[in-house]
Design a protein around this nucleic acid. Structure first.
Lengths: 197, 197
DNA sequence: CGATTCTTTGAAAACAGTCAATCTGTGTGG
DNA sequence: CCACACAGATTGACTGTTTTCAAAGAATCG
């Protein structure tokens, strides 16, 4: 047992997918930094450098940028059992263009890049898992790009609902609008036309 | 020396990035399938299952879909020293939604998924290289998604020019339009307004 | 309840798409 | 070498979609 429930949750998430020895789980737990953030608090602020891998044990995060007009653009959502962070800042060491904010009170595990890389080098199954997740994320990204260049606003909304029903009913709809790249007013109008039929 | 110049090119691409023993390069070369395709020929046709990893030694490929109105949407370009293929079809075994076509006469190396995975398991440096490429590709994808939801058509065009000048002057501009998700007519109008200043 | 956040609405303007026609450059076959 | 075909780019007029801005209604939370 660990001092922190979210670390337990993280270890369970891992052992659900890969086999780990007692030493390995201990080794992982040792470098886990549990963290709680309240609704509307920032985990990462634009301009800061991101240094971790973050696992969401409970709650909900969003990653977004703010453009020159003050409009927010949501790049990602991260509910429980998802990962969050800014890989670009992590990899390059440059200041992030994004904010990561809690949509709900959130429990996290942070692992610094150095520790995480070390774990991956020491535990091959973990390395494989991480690569499998990355691989899947890439495919999902490509699909979102394809949707972005080929679907109408209405189709993008429908696709979002189909793909992420559990997210859709947990967030305000202006965040869905932001994620698919339209204004909240446009989303209202799309919904009016659809529910009318 | 290999029977095929494109395999040599591929091996050089690899040894430029990682250290390989003579046996390892031999092992890799052994499973390489060299292939030439002519301009406008298809490497992959929508509906077929994609089975390979494809390295572009020379020439130029594009990956695109055709929507219900008959419009093409370009998901990716692959010039020399890039990889191509449909990872989604490769991973799931499902028929591809995409076509991959040669924009110019193209020299390729194909490696079947089975052989490729085996190589990665046998040669750790190769595995690391592949993961590093995937990691980078993911970051590039995220950036394109962000551009898609936050930039105007004009800004997307400008970003494309900045990011891929060497691609921009090698393809017809209606393909740039297709890649950034606008019509060729709109791109013409954007250009007119910009070069006018 | 009062404050805040979120959604909806309307009217106008900006933007992007459609369709059809024309213009341009390139390359091929006669 | 010319004529023609073809792919690509541009234009204009029109339509349709999306944004913008301002205001008013819900809904939620402390």
């Amino acid at each position: 047992m660990n001092p922190s429930p979210v670390i337990d949750k993280f270890i369970r998430y891992l052992t659900d997918k890969i086999t780990l020895s007692a030493e390995e789980t201990a080794q992982i737990a040792q470098v886990c930094i549990p963290k709680k953030i309240r609704k509307r608090q920032l985990l990462l602020q634009e301009g800061d450098v991101w240094k971790y891998n973050a696992f969401v044990g409970g709650g909900f995060l969003r990653t977004y940028s703010i453009d020159h007009k003050g409009n927010e653009h949501i790049l990602n959502f991260a509910p429980e059992n998802y990962w969050s962070g800014d890989r670009e800042s992590l990899m390059t060491g440059k200041p992030s263009r994004f904010n990561i904010e809690a949509i709900e009170d959130t429990d996290l595990v942070l692992i610094t890049k150095e520790n995480f890389d070390l774990l991956c080098r020491t535990i091959p199954q973990l390395n494989d898992l991480v690569n499998a997740i990355l691989h899947k994320s890439f495919i999902v990204s490509q699909d979102r790009i394809h949707a972005g260049i080929s679907l109408s606003a209405e189709e993008k909304y429908q696709k979002f609902l189909d793909q992420y029903p559990q997210i859709a009913n947990r967030i305000p709809q202006h965040m869905i609008a932001s994620y698919i790249g339209i204004t909240p007013e446009t989303l209202t109008r799309i919904r009016r036309n659809n529910t009318g039929k």
